Amino acid sequence: MLQTSFTTFTETLEKKLREPLPGEAAHRKMASASRLRQMLKPNERTRKSAVLIVFYPYQGSIYMPLILRPIYDGVHAGQMAFPGGRMERTDRSLIQTALREAQEEIGIRVTDVRVLGKLTELYIPPSNFFVLPVVGVLPHRPEFYPDPREVDRVVEVELRSLMDESIIGINEIEVRGTTINAPFYQIQEFRVWGATAMMISELLTVIDHLV
């Protein structure tokens, strides 16, 4: 039964990703007040990067992995994110970047991933990255092998749990000595905010009523 519904979910999502995307309208719902006020744009030093949003069937439902970044000297230390990173010169495309990074960070085999499409690129001012969210599926729950240098923990998220609007909140968050007001998703014991929350917002708008 699950395989049938997961197949239907996959086929429908692939079609929806070919349609016009909600983009900035969905991003704004989970953007911080400072981001909305500053309206920063990519510049000549902006670097390209990509993340992988990958779904798989598990325990009668549909899941996706997020990662908790370890504490380090960087702007995204200790934050929740999708696996991903900067584009390397050897990458043929940003899709390859997303797949390669996911394999390096959490051990997903790129040959197992079926890419369905892409969401809207999103600019991240603190790190000056322009990020492409790539969407794909796996036929089964993968074995995760997180790289401890990049990943403190892999967090498996049931897709249906993201549909509950009660997990959305707003709070003051301290970022490198500055306090900002930012919306967040309360996912298990983690608050997911910033660019990852904005990507999730667009994703949920695209998959509305699919699960």
Rank of each mutant, 00 (worst) to 15 (best):
M1P: 03
T4F: 12
T7K: 14
T8F: 14
F9D: 04
T10Q: 15
T10E: 08
K15Y: 08
L17N: 01
L17D: 00
E19M: 13
P20N: 14
A25L: 11
A26R: 02
K29S: 09
S32K: 03
A33V: 10
S34R: 11
M39Y: 15
L40C: 03
L40I: 07
K41T: 14
P42F: 12
E44I: 15
T46D: 07
K48F: 06
V51M: 05
L52S: 04
I53K: 03
G60L: 13
G60T: 10
S61R: 08
I62K: 04
M64W: 11
M64Y: 14
R69I: 05
R69E: 04
P70S: 04
P70I: 03
P70Q: 07
I71D: 06
I71T: 14
Y72T: 10
Y72A: 01
D73W: 08
G74N: 10
H76C: 09
H76W: 15
G78I: 09
Q79T: 15
G84L: 06
M87G: 04
E88S: 14
T90S: 09
L94C: 00
I95A: 06
A102F: 04
A102W: 08
Q103I: 02
L116P: 07
T120K: 14
E121H: 01
L122S: 04
P125K: 06
P126F: 10
S127G: 11
F129K: 13
L132F: 14
G136V: 11
G136Y: 04
H140F: 08
P142Y: 11
F144L: 04
F144I: 02
P146H: 04
D147Y: 08
D152T: 04
D152A: 05
R153N: 03
R153P: 00
V154R: 02
V154K: 07
V157G: 02
L159A: 10
R160Q: 09
S161Y: 12
L162A: 02
M163P: 00
E165N: 12
S166Y: 03
S166H: 05
R176W: 09
T179Q: 10
I180C: 02
A182D: 06
P183C: 06
P183M: 10
F184D: 00
Q188K: 13
E189V: 09
W193G: 00
G194S: 05
T196S: 09
M198N: 00
I200T: 05
S201V: 11
S201M: 07
E202Y: 10
D208Q: 13
H209W: 03
L210R: 07
